[in-house]
Amino acid sequence: MRLAYDRGMVDVEPAGRASEALPAYVAVAVAGVPEVDVVAVAPLAGGTGAATADVARVTARTPDGRELTLVRKSVRPLRAGRHAEAARAPEHWAYWRREPLAYASGVLPSGPGLRAPRCFGVETAADTLTLWLEDVVGPEAEPVAAARALASWQASAPVPDVPWLGGHQLAQRLAVTDLDWTQVDADPRVARVWAARHELMAALDGVPSVLSHGDAGLGNLREATGDVVALDWGTFGVAPVGSDAAHLALSAQADVLGPYVDALDGTFAVDDVRRGYRTTLALVGASRVHWMLAAGVSVPRGYVDLLWRLRPDGVR
């Protein structure tokens, strides 16, 4: 089988046992020669997506002594937890084949502004897909620059007609989530936000949908060669405009609505953008507070103040 990537058509090779060389088609794509030895493999922290099996940085050396690094990421079906059954559907946010399909489709952003890492190919096995990706070296993106890059992409990118595009992730998560606030010592303001979730979600019905990264926190956004490079496209889909900016705001603990709206350049009504942004920020933030407290993790200072200050209208 062959799939189209940013360097043209590449073979999708069957995955076999670990070897001491890069797959030949990956070696040709990244180094221009078919034989490149692997000299080190180092696991990378942060590969905790629902469908992620393994993420590692692979260091390799060409016959003429050049060293290069790639990221090797393996994905597999979700087999346990409350999302496992629903995640078999291609429109579910945790559908395991989405990221390889997204790279093959050519619909991921390629800059300038926002771009995905380059993909050099995919190995496939019965229940695992392994992506060979560009190793993006750079600091976390600056929040305002990231907000502008996300908005510029969403203002101009059409929603493709493909069956594997993720649906509204927040709605899918809320459909199977019931948080018991009596079991955690939470700021009462957070529980009040959560109690309004059904009304808040209903108010999103009229908000336009855009392409969405789905997990646009600073941990997935890097600054490299003048672009914002977004990592981890496993939750790529559609969501109300403003949703990705809300994820960014929560991770940066800063309000980024202003630069996001500016970069949308009038493509969407400001009231719609604000509703999508504030609703997503409030409900995602509230659920994360519950998770942190239940797991014994300290809630960052100012986190609850941010989501309360930016809560949607009507939450008292």
Rank of each mutant, 00 (worst) to 15 (best):
V190H: 08
V190M: 02
V190D: 04
V190E: 05
V190Q: 10
R192G: 11
R192D: 12
R192W: 00
R192I: 02
V193T: 08
A196W: 15
R197L: 12
R197Q: 09
H198V: 15
H198K: 04
H198E: 15
L200E: 07
L200F: 12
L200N: 09
M201L: 15
A202T: 11
A203E: 12
A203L: 01
L204Y: 06
L204V: 07
L204Q: 10
D205E: 14
D205T: 13
D205Y: 02
D205R: 14
G206A: 10
G206K: 09
V207A: 13
V207S: 12
P208Y: 13
P208N: 02
V210A: 08
S212Q: 10
S212M: 04
H213K: 03
D215K: 06
A216M: 09
G217I: 11
G219K: 13
N220W: 10
L221K: 09
L221A: 09
L221N: 11
G226L: 14
D227G: 07
D227Y: 08
V228K: 00
V229L: 03
V229H: 01
A230W: 14
D232W: 12
W233Y: 13
W233H: 10
W233I: 05
W233D: 01
T235R: 14
V238D: 00
V238G: 01
A239E: 10
P240H: 02
P240K: 03
V241P: 01
D244F: 00
D244M: 01
A245F: 06
A245D: 05
A245W: 02
A249D: 08
A249N: 06
A249L: 06
S251W: 05
S251Y: 07
A252I: 09
A254Q: 13
A254R: 14
D255H: 04
L257G: 00
L257H: 02
P259M: 11
P259C: 14
P259V: 14
P259R: 12
Y260T: 07
V261T: 13
D262F: 08
L264A: 04
L264C: 03
G266Q: 06
T267F: 02
T267H: 13
V270D: 15
V270T: 15
V273A: 11
R274A: 13
R275D: 02
G276K: 07
Y277L: 07
T279P: 03
T279K: 01
T280Y: 07
L281V: 09
A282G: 01
G285H: 09
A286W: 05
S287Y: 11
R288L: 13
H290A: 05
W291A: 09
M292Q: 15
L293H: 09
A295C: 00
G296N: 11
P300L: 10
R301K: 06
R301W: 00
G302R: 12
G302P: 04
Y303P: 00
D305S: 15
